[in-house]
Design a protein around this nucleic acid. Structure first.
Length: 104
RNA sequence: GGAGUUGGCCAGACAGUCGCCGCCGGAGCGAUCCGGGGGAGGAAAGUCCGGGCUCCACAGGGCAGAGUGCCAGGUAACGCCUGGGCGGCGCGAGCCGACGGAAAGUGCAGCAGAGAGUAGACCGCCUACGUCUCCUCCGGGAGGCCGGCAAGGGUGAAAGGGUGCGGUAAGAGCGCACCGCGCGCCUGGUAACAGUGCGUGGCAAGGUAAACCCCACUCGGAGCAAGACCAAAUAGGAACCCCAAGACGUGGCCCGCGUCGGGUUCGGGUAGGUCGCUCGAGAGCCGUGGUGACGCGGCUCCUAGAUGAAUGACUGUUCUCGACAAAACCCGGCUUAUCGGCCGACUCCCGCC
């Protein structure tokens, strides 16, 4: 799961929350963090300027690399789409919602 | 060929591209860039012991508390390791053992059973001694009382050495022989301990000490969030200098009384940062002493150091298709998890020559 909010840095920024409670083994936690970082690294230029916090749900450690990459890629696409949509709305209403939420 | 015991080792490999964290060299005022090289484990785990290191405490001794517990050796130290002893398991190679003390004291133990601890008498055996009754062929016999015994049966996880002979009323280490046991000596061994050794004791009072306890030995506390250094903003403090005028409160007002300033420097200290942080009881090879753990000497090598915490992703080739699992100050152990593979030594069984 990921949470996102616009920032003023001009580029995306990543936060990671992988609790011992949801991912028991240190090996799995490190692997997940590496995969998320790698995914962001490869797609950072296509992402809007938002702060993203990625959280692990219980059982995330059991997914293999290929599945995770696919899911992350899909998540970034939907995030980009949602941000574009809210920006368009903002231009119309000049109002700025603080949080855009990307689904899982 | 099969079954097994034991010691050690490995933990996918190679190439390319893009990344992450240190280090070295170069360029740049700098941000940073370029090049080179390094980057998780045998258990990094559990945090159960031991030590180094750091800070705190400390004249000496005792008590309390905790731990350890056959002997010798190894080690910085250990609850670890090696060798040995004893006991147990296994045909064997081997494996397992908190393995000091129960005649210092206290405590604890369901059921069964007469009795479970200064032992005991249900069944049973005996009637010698003392005494009573009856019978008598006058030798004695039968029965009772008072009693004796613990061999046999029975209970139990466990009932106060075992076997045999003597002995006796019946019995009993009551006596003897052998076996076992205790104690002393001798011999071997550094010792634990062992002995077909010599002598001695009739045998000496169950179990439990991971129950209290006794004996011997060991142990100060806290931990890298230890500890050291640099050091904003804000608030407060100290010293010196400046102004000694003004502001505020009290009051109708003045006097009076109370409170307050500005600057510089310094010290403590928070955020933040730096160090501690990896060259070490270090690794490899060779030699050497030792049964071994291990020690000594020589040569060579430098081998993670992060701080939200770094090893990955993708592609290709290949194999036996990859288990358990991530350093956080360091090291020595123990314990636990683990797909599979390789090497050495040994044991038992079967077959063939």
């Amino acid at each position: 799961m990921a949470l996102a909010a616009p920032n003023i840095l001009g580029h995306p920024r990543l936060g990671l929350v992988f609790s011992k409670r949801n991912v028991r083994l240190a090996v799995e936690r490190n692997r997940l963090k590496r995969l998320v970082r790698e995914s962001i690294r490869l797609t950072q230029h296509d992402l809007p300027a938002v702060d993203i916090v990625v959280l692990a749900r219980r059982g995330a450690g059991e997914l293999d690399n290929e599945t995770l990459h696919r899911q992350l890629h899909g998540m970034w696409r939907r995030l980009d789409r949602d941000v574009r949509k809210t920006n368009a709305l903002n231009h119309e209403s000049a109002d700025s919602p603080r949080t855009g939420k990307a689904p899982e």
